[in-house]
């Protein structure tokens, strides 16, 4: 299988296997006109299997949100066929309206028009907790 090199755009690499569609949805890549290639289950020495997303175009994204979905992610910015910048992905302190709390006792399970907010409780372990009930994400 061959996917052409991109000239100007973004490569999101080292995505945990199977999570590329989560990122596709999160970044709403389906709404862009530019070519987007999703490679799933690519063999990786470090990860076993990984996903890659190649976007043939530039746009503003909150890269830290990517870290929440998959902390292993790396992002390369490509200009004129060369990597001109490697983005450092960090875990965001807070994520809003990306996932919902699974605790059936949480107020967010019933309250209308509430923001679903999670805070970073343990950076080392990458643990997020619901801001309302403290349940693990």
């Amino acid at each position: 299988m061959r996917v052409d090199e991109i000239k100007n755009g973004i490569v999101i690499d080292h995505i945990e296997g199977g999570k590329s569609m989560d990122i596709y949805d999160l970044l709403q890549l389906g709404t862009f006109d530019c070519p987007v290639a999703i490679l799933r289950n690519v063999p990786s020495r470090k990860m076993g299997k990984k996903d890659i997303i190649k976007i043939d175009g530039h746009f503003d994204i909150d890269f830290n949100l990517l870290g929440f979905i998959s902390p292993t992610i790396t992002v390369d910015i490509i200009n004129d066929g060369h990597v001109t910048e490697k983005k450092h992905i960090d875990l965001p302190e807070k994520v809003m309206d990306i996932i919902k709390c699974k605790n059936p006792r949480c107020i967010s399970s019933v309250e209308q028009e509430i923001h679903h907010i999670f805070y970073l409780a343990d950076r080392q372990k990458g643990i997020y907790r619901c801001t309302y009930c403290d349940a693990k994400a």
């Binding site: 006792r105 949480c106 107020i107 309250e111 509430i114 801001t131 309302y132 403290d134």
Partner: peptide, 8 residues
């Protein structure tokens, strides 16, 4: 009865 209601 719901956890987090007073925070809301």
């Amino acid at each position: 009865p719901k956890e987090g209601a007073p925070m809301v």
